[in-house]
Design a protein around this nucleic acid. Structure first.
Length: 501
DNA sequence: ACTCACCCTG
DNA sequence: CAGGGTGAGT
């Protein structure tokens, strides 16, 4: 029976169709400085695992270098640039270009100065003796750092060697073969024990601390017009062809914890997402920038906080499926400070999709409850809402499609339409919301799907689809079919570990 | 003015 | 899935 007697323009007030008004008016969170270089060069390499740290180091050095150059650029006397904050998007582009040009200029001049053996410092006033003294101090520091890094490499190799064995690749050697690595070693410890959940955490912390010192030291050296111990300065700026701060290349695919976790053999019973959360909790220094594209409306674009998310990598569509929804929006001004969950991750997306099995129209309160690890602001809230809107869209499209198909197949009664786990419709829906198929479709969702299918079938069979707003009556029915979401979804660090098959 | 659902599009 | 437009509710 076609739902009739409903007003053409429906009011969803009183239902949860309309999300309650959002409270967050402030855009808190870190101040994203446009001046912070976030770009990174083409880091593609043959050894993704070793690249992880390698890229991190390069990125850090670059950021620090540019930072140092930036702070000391007054003596350069080159063109003026706009203030660091409050740039409009167009200004940001020019600004980024100018900054990159300056950095390249400075770096190259440093390099040439060193080659000439003359350190033209341009008015910093350091005496040669003092510089020599500082140099020796810095060298000592660097030696220390080298030792630390070397030790960390060994530990890392121990962990990764297990993976290397399986994949037939020599990760340890690969890591040591990275050109320009500090204290590179070809030693590959055998008998690696795999405890990524614990050892990796400790290693990341250690590595983070050591790297911080190393990078700082290197930058100090740079700022004193000395050549860097690693990475000849002119070796990378030239490949940077995009504005530094906002355009972020797809460069750290392995930084995603989901992928990192996936690197290790996982028992089938352990959801990769749980591992991902574990990894995140351990320390997200080098992947904290991983986030989904977050941009919702032109209004939000005006917010500096959101503007950062706007210019995401342009190549999402070419990425592997598993990464297609990931986008780096750049790193925090400092790589090393701990951060709360700023953006929505692929793990959150996965969770949202599974939650759709229970709720088609989640209220903002529900979202906050079940995404408690996310720091909500307008952007995040809107993005989540948009997700569910997209989920609904797919859901309803499938319903209409299958009901029309049934009609054309000669189905006469809606009662003969059923949705079971074996149904093609269920398969399609499962493929969309539960791609990994590690979660069983709740029977409640099958019921909702069946009801929806029958609603569509009835409406179409009775010609209600002639009305431009014919779907609205169906929506009103469906929005009342919300189910209780399992408490397991409330956990900020995991999904229900209901793994099937 | 603001927010959200839906629609269409890429 | 995200952007943008539109209509509607508050």
């Amino acid at each position: 029976m076609c739902v009739t007697g409903l007003p053409t323009t429906m009011s969803f007030s009183g239902t949860n169709l309309k999300l309650e008004r959002l409270e967050e008016q402030q855009l808190e969170g870190p101040t994203y400085q446009l001046s912070q270089p976030r770009g990174c060069g083409d880091m593609a390499g043959p050894y993704p695992d070793s690249d992880l740290i390698s890229q991190w180091l390069r990125r850090s050095v670059k950021a620090k270098l540019a930072e140092a150059c930036d702070s000391g650029e007054s003596s350069q006397g080159d063109r003026e640039v706009p203030a660091k904050r409050g740039l409009d998007p167009e200004g940001a582009k020019d600004f980024a270009w100018a900054k990159r040009a300056r950095v390249e200029n400075i770096v190259c001049s440093i390099s040439s100065s060193y080659r000439d053996g003359s350190l033209e410092e341009g008015g910093t006033g350091y005496s040669r003796s003092r510089r020599a003294q500082e140099r020796s101090q810095l060298k000592q520091q660097l030696e220390k750092m080298r030792e630390q890094v070397f030790q960390l490499q060994e530990k890392l190799c121990q962990i990764y060697s297990g993976v290397a064995r399986e994949e037939g690749s020599n990760v340890g050697a690969a890591w040591s073969q990275e050109p320009g690595r500090v204290g590179a070693s070809t030693r590959r410890p055998g008998g690696g024990s795999r405890h990524p959940g614990t050892l990796a955490e400790a290693l990341k912390e250690e590595l983070g601390a050591a790297m911080t010192q190393v990078v700082d030291t290197v930058v100090q050296v740079f700022s004193r017009q000395q050549p860097p111990p690693e990475e000849p300065p002119c070796s990378y700026p030239s490949d940077q062809t995009e504005a530094l701060p906002l355009v972020v290349r797809k460069s750290l695919p392995h930084a995603c914890p989901e992928l990192v976790a996936g690197t290790f053999p996982q028992p089938m019973a352990v959801s990769p997402y749980l591992s991902a959360f574990k990894d995140r909790a351990a320390g997200e220094a080098y992947w904290e920038g991983v986030s989904l594209r977050t941009k919702l409306s032109s209004r939000h674009l005006l917010q500096p906080h959101c503007a950062l998310f706007q210019l995401a990598g342009p190549t999402d569509h070419q990425l592997p499926k598993r990464q297609a929804t990931e986008t780096h929006h750049g790193l925090e001004p400092t790589l090393y400070k701990p951060s709360s969950q700023e953006g929505l991750t692929p793990v959150h997306l996965k969770k949202a999709k599974l939650m759709f099995f229970y709720t088609r129209y989640p209220s903002s309160g529900t979202l906050k409850t079940y995404f408690s690890d996310v720091k909500f602001n307008r952007c995040i809230t809107s993005q989540l809402i948009k997700w569910f809107s997209n989920f609904r869209e797919f859901f309803y499209i499938q319903m209409e499609k299958f009901s029309r198909q049934a009609l054309s197949d000669g189905v006469l009664s809606a009662e003969t339409l059923t949705v079971t786990r074996d149904s093609e419709l269920a398969r399609v829906l499962n493929q969309h919301y539960n791609k990994a198929n590690d979660y069983e479709i709740p029977s409640k969702f099958l019921e909702v799907s069946q009801i929806t299918l029958r609603e569509f079938f009835n409406a179409i069979s009775q010609g209600c689809d002639a009305d431009p707003s014919w779907k609205k009556s169906i929506y009103k029915v469906i929005c009342k079919l919300e189910c209780d979401i399992p408490d397991a979804f409330k956990s900020p660090h995991g999904l229900p570990d209901t793994v099937h098959e």
